[in-house]
Simulated scan of single mutants.
Amino acid sequence: MLPPALGITTGINFQPMGGNKAAINGDFVMTAPEAQKVIRALRKGDIDIVELHNHSLTDQPRLFYLHFWATTDGVTLAKALRPALDATAPTPAS
């Protein structure tokens, strides 16, 4: 088990822009079976995918990192992110 401080965690950042707008960016950490589900959910929510990559050659399970970005109404962004989160198997930090 690796602690979240080592970067093996999904991170989502909201930046208020005023006028009910927000910018979001962050990383999804996911396994291969989760990747397409997350990509579809983000695209459906008009959230831009910046990059998809992996960090290690022999990690088990194999993890992929997806960076994303969007700006619009903050509530709309939060609702668009929910299906992507639901496509992964997150566990709360201890």
Rank of each mutant, 00 (worst) to 15 (best):
V38M: 05
K21W: 08
G11A: 13
F14Y: 06
M17P: 01
G26L: 15
P33G: 04
Q15F: 06
I8F: 13
T10L: 03
A32I: 10
G18V: 03
N20E: 02
I24Y: 03
M17C: 07
P33N: 05
V38R: 07
M30P: 06
T31L: 10
M30K: 11
R40V: 02
D27H: 15
K44N: 12
A22D: 10
K44V: 02
G26A: 14
K37G: 06
G26V: 14
I8C: 13
A22C: 10
G18T: 03
V38A: 07
I12N: 05
K44W: 01
V29T: 14
G26Q: 15
I12R: 09
G7H: 02
I39R: 12
R40K: 15
R43T: 06
T9E: 07
T10Y: 06
A35K: 14
G19Q: 10
P33M: 07
N25D: 04
N20F: 00
Q15P: 00
K21N: 10
G18D: 08
A32G: 03
A41T: 03
D27M: 12
G19H: 12
G7R: 13
T31A: 12
Q36V: 05
Q15R: 13
A23C: 08
G18I: 11
K44L: 12
Q36Y: 08
T9D: 00
K37E: 00
K37S: 05
R43C: 03
G19F: 03
G11W: 09
G7V: 01
Q36W: 12
I12A: 09
E34F: 06
V38L: 10
T10E: 00
Q15C: 10
V38G: 09
T10V: 07
V38H: 07
T9W: 02
K21A: 12
R40N: 14
I24H: 08
M30E: 04
K21T: 04
N20P: 00
T9R: 15
I8M: 14
I12W: 05
N25C: 05
A35D: 00
M30Q: 09
D27V: 14
F14G: 02
I8G: 09
M17F: 01
Q36R: 12
A23T: 11
M30T: 04
M30A: 13
G19A: 09
D27G: 06
Q15I: 13
G45Y: 09
N20C: 01
A23K: 15
P16Y: 15
T10G: 02
R43M: 01
G11Q: 11
V29G: 10
N25I: 00
K37D: 02
N13I: 12
P16D: 12
K37Y: 00
G18Y: 04
G7P: 09
T10H: 11
T9F: 07
L42M: 09
L42A: 09
L42V: 05
M30D: 01
G19V: 02
R43A: 03
K44A: 14
